[in-house]
Write a protein that binds this DNA or RNA. Structure first.
Lengths: 243, 243
DNA sequence: CGCAGCATTGACGCCTGTCAATTTGAGTGG
DNA sequence: CCACTCAAATTGACAGGCGTCAATGCTGCG
């Protein structure tokens, strides 16, 4: 039996390998500072002068943009191996806030130092460009989801994205803890916290996800493919009551 | 009298200078192919092998992403001086379609050739990185608008973005032609074409924009700041009848 | 033990999507 | 130059998804 639908978020099976090799390359070739992060720590804030790039070695971060009139918005989540700070290159100042959502370790390096290292070792430059490329593609995927999916489907898609990110990093994907409040998730997905809660409850009612006894932040996904089927519409929405 | 609100899209006044210098640098230092574009021409399609980067010398392009299950979405617009194709670096294949919306001229260069030129002339590398950085920031701004603004405000914001892009490129900003159908605009803004039409009509009723006699694609904006005030909520929505 | 933050659930209403009719405008051929 | 045709745009009626408001339950911590 072949896959009925391609999972929306399918990191290559060798993503874990890729990320490990990238981290190895960076730590071999670039002088790094290492910093322990705790939930709530600010890596950089909008307006700060740009001098450094960052690599998240472990943990979880959110990117928050704020408009001139005060609307703020989670525009990205970052996992182990993701790079941060590219937004500052063009203007010399960071355009957003970056905040830790969990404990972890952050690497930082001066941009000019990194470029010197790249000049000496071309594969390093390729890695940097690939990471920028990934950042661009990921944002576009987020826009696609925001514009084309219903609120419930966006929540399901978000869970698949999270699971896919863990899978690409070698962690278990059938059960994980969302290290965000419903309000943060809702902000990221362009909906209210109540809609997030209702969507999760609906998915749980349909047995497409489950909650553990440890609290409602820990999510179980028995079958990723079933969830993907819901996102692409091949499974009806969990609106009606189901037995 | 100081500005009541900062315009949401405010390219630096010297953006035109920056873009001209960038184009000059690229054409001086990198072997280019030049190609004439017409509306509908495809620059690259999703899945195509990545070998080249592109710079739009004149004209207008849209970026379209398609999900595995067939949802498609305009995720970006590009004007004179914008770079294209970064999405292909990470995977070696393009992740989206790029389609011309107007006649124009496109420059293309091999990525490896560009990198060789960058190795010889560091400012060129900085330019490339700055363009990638801008692409990341722009996508985030789009997400911010999608998630935090009402449909009518998104349309107003879109017009300001368009005007700002023209301003940064030295063109008149009080009157311009949208080279997209309502359906394309709606797709880009995450709403239906009817909502776009209603929003434009509402803004026109409020005299915040005007249509010329040449057709409903040409938009006049008498006061950018008034429109910006509407986006940030300091001016009430054009729902009710006015005078 | 009690408080404060987080999550769930229900009721209600509005924004915006859907469907449909009509008008406008552009392109084509007689 | 005008009639014809078709895509694009406008506008209205209606409904449903989701935001808003509010009450309640749950959990962790002082």
């Amino acid at each position: 039996m072949t896959l009925p639908t391609a999972p929306p978020h399918c990191p290559h099976a060798d993503d874990g390998q890729r990320i490990r090799a990238m981290l190895q390359l960076v730590s071999d070739r670039v002088p790094l500072q290492r910093r322990l992060l705790h939930a709530g720590d600010v890596v950089h804030a909008a307006g700060m002068p740009f001098t450094q790039l960052f690599v998240l070695n472990t943990g979880l971060l959110k990117i928050v943009c704020t408009s001139a009139d005060g609307r703020d918005q989670v525009v990205g989540l970052h996992f182990r191996g993701d790079w941060l700070g590219f937004d500052g290159i063009a203007t010399g100042r960071h355009a957003c806030d970056t905040v830790a959502l969990d404990t972890g370790e952050l690497w930082s390096m001066r941009y000019d130092t990194l470029m010197q290292a790249c000049a000496l070792h071309r594969p390093l430059l390729d890695v940097v460009h690939a990471e920028m490329s990934r950042a661009i593609t990921r944002s576009r995927t987020a826009i696609l989801s925001l514009c084309t999916l219903s609120a419930a489907a966006r929540v399901a898609d978000f869970l698949l994205y999270w699971a896919g990110s863990l899978e690409g990093r070698g962690q278990r994907t059938d059960s994980f803890t969302l290290r965000m409040t419903r309000a943060e998730i809702g902000n990221y997905l362009g909906m209210t916290l109540e809609s997030v809660s209702r969507a999760l409850s609906g998915l749980a009612r349909r047995r497409m996800i489950g909650f553990t006894e440890k609290g409602r932040r820990e999510i179980m996904i028995p079958d990723l493919r079933a969830l993907a089927g819901f996102v692409d519409g091949s499974v009806p929405p969990p609106g009606a009551t189901v037995q």
